[in-house]
Design a binder for these strands. Structure first.
Lengths: 159, 159
DNA sequence: ATAGATGTTAGAGTATACTCGAAGTCAAGA
DNA sequence: TCTTGACTTCGAGTATACTCTAACATCTAT
């Protein structure tokens, strides 16, 4: 006798709503889930590993269609180990790039937080414009260069 | 005589399409952009700073509605410096949380890449199950614990 | 046996962020 | 003057990922 988990049980345990689980099934992500004679989904203990993998891929920013492609490879077993490895390697690179991007944004947001505090002290959002050039904080100069590059369309020099 | 930039010029320089710029305007993000008598948008040199801020907030994951709220504060000038500071501080915390989340995902994806390579060597995605417990790599044991926690619905213990 | 909880499907609705098409306006050069 | 090209608005269309409703089926406990 095998224990099965109902869709609402899985929903409660995983935090994925039953609606979303059905949607994932409809989109071809849950091909591994068995059904009862009457058509009800029967989740097993083992199904939680692919379910967890789905959440990891989703939280990594992978779109549903690509997760579906991965799950289709999963269903084919050992023949697709290499393909699945390649997909994870690609996702690894994507994650590193996403982290880099957010870290770059964090630097700018950190600067902005500092700048707003300086501006608040003086109650003037453009206080530095009234200062002699040598008294302007280098952080402000650097930021203004970034904005200038943005205006010059420097993003074209990427490739 | 002041130089103005047309919408297509701004689009070419910033990489934001003219369609998107008009959409942002419609959503209330570009309240700072002047118009000609005939209604054409006249972007100035100074407009590139708020435009850049919009891209930073967007790349930081801020939804358009919230960027609109920020830009409305921007239009009000010095009276809203503190409010804008608070919004950036919040965005700073959000970014740190997003980075943490992606770093957590990266750890798991790194593990998966390693595991798929081990499985590929043996052409068996479940090779470790046939091993005596003491020969199973601790990384596998650790991962299986995470999946088990997921099955137990451990996310409920967050708060 | 029947009520109520839980499950099923198909399909509609929501939210977000664009992306585009149509019809019309306007300024500048041949 | 006229044509061309860039601009305008409005509204429709697209893509993604849910989220929910309706109608019906099934299972369980009294």
């Amino acid at each position: 006798m095998k224990k099965y988990y109902s869709i609402s049980d899985v929903a409660a345990r995983t935090g994925i709503s039953a609606y979303t689980l059905r949607y994932y099934d409809k989109e071809g992500l849950l091909g591994f889930v068995k059904r009862s004679e009457s058509g009800k989904r029967l989740f097993t203990k083992e199904d939680f590993e692919p379910l967890y993998t789905i959440t990891v891929l989703k939280r990594s920013g992978m779109p549903i269609r690509k997760i579906r492609d991965f799950m289709n490879l999963y269903l084919l077993g050992n023949e697709t180990i290499h393909n699945r490895y390649v997909m994870f390697e690609e996702q690894r690179r994507s994650l590193i790039q996403q982290i880099r991007e957010l870290e770059e944004m964090l630097k700018i947001v950190d600067y902005k937080c500092w700048y707003f505090q300086e501006a608040e002290k003086r109650n003037d959002i453009n206080y530095y414009k009234k200062l002699p050039a040598e008294e302007v904080d280098p952080r402000i100069v650097e930021f203004n260069k970034i904005v200038e590059d943005f205006r010059e369309g420097s993003s074209e020099t990427e490739l």
